[in-house]
């Protein structure tokens, strides 16, 4: 008897309603388009996410590594009911947000990864995905965690999220926070923006190709600087570490 193992391993995705694209103006005066990205475009995203795994700053390394795994899992049919939204400025990738439906009525936010900083692009992306959960998918609640202090300020504080600490979040098993429909409605006028429909030329540019980010986050000049500054301002630990390495290499 032959067994098609792929049928067992591959999750059965439910049909999630499509996200209707929108656009908004940034502080720079540029228009950013938010649109859904489907499986066939995931490889285009992966190549722009991978470099951020090596950016040891603001938890870009952790977030990018996880986003990479989530997108790859989605691409290779190993992640159930995931959706991905991209934010593009003139075709350039500016942010990726993703999440999934846990069950009818309950959503789960995965990640918000800003590839261009200083213009609330990440915040606009997060608002767009919450809008998708609450307004389009009809979720009553979205489970959320933050991996960075910036995320905590943007989500937990700005949206005044409720604690759901009894629910371990799928990201690392840490206690969850929740955005309810009521909280979202309260935040809507201040934090959720965007215009529909997207002018055809803008949308066409976004759909044509996902262009690489022109100014992505980069690692600190000295990769040890963060550690040294926080834990070892006199660099004695660093010196000690080098001595140990030299000893290990038989140079002592």
């Amino acid at each position: 008897m032959s067994v098609d193992l792929e049928k067992i391993l591959r999750p059965i995705d439910h049909d999630l309603a499509p996200y209707e694209p929108k656009y908004m103006m940034l502080a720079s005066g540029e228009a950013v388009v938010v649109r859904q990205v489907f499986r066939d475009e995931i490889p285009d995203l992966l190549k722009h996410v991978e470099p951020l795994i090596h950016v040891e700053r603001d938890f870009y390394d952790v977030v990018a590594a996880r986003v990479y795994a989530e997108l790859l899992g989605y691409y290779k049919h190993r992640f159930q009911d995931q959706y991905v939204l991209a934010l593009q400025v003139d075709g350039e990738l500016a942010a990726i947000v993703n999440g999934r439906e846990v069950k009818p009525g309950l959503g789960l936010s995965l990640h918000t990864l800003a590839l261009r900083r200083g213009l609330r692009i990440g915040a606009h992306g997060f608002a767009a995905k919450m809008e998708y959960h609450i307004d389009t998918l009809g979720h009553d609640e979205v489970l959320i965690v933050a991996e960075s202090p910036i995320g905590f300020r943007r989500w937990m504080i700005e949206y005044k999220l409720e604690k759901r600490f009894d629910i371990p979040h799928e990201l690392g098993g840490v206690p969850s926070w929740a955005l309810t429909r009521e909280l979202f409605d309260r935040a809507r006028s201040k934090l959720v923006v965007g215009r529909r429909p997207v002018p055809p030329a803008l949308l066409e540019k976004a759909m044509e190709k996902i262009l690489p980010p022109s100014d992505p986050p980069t690692p600190p000049l000295d990769p040890l600087a963060a550690t040294r500054a926080l834990y070892d301002p006199t660099a004695t630990a660093l010196v000690q570490q080098r001595w140990e390495m030299e000893k290990g290499a038989g140079n002592a």
């Binding site: 502080a27 200083g118 215009r195």
Partner: peptide
């Protein structure tokens, strides 16, 4: 700050109150 801003983006656009 190495990011250009415009009056439209921070003051006049429908998104200005959220951007700024």
């Amino acid at each position: 700050l190495q990011q250009a801003i415009t009056l439209e983006g921070i003051l006049d656009s429908p998104e200005a109150m959220t951007n700024n």
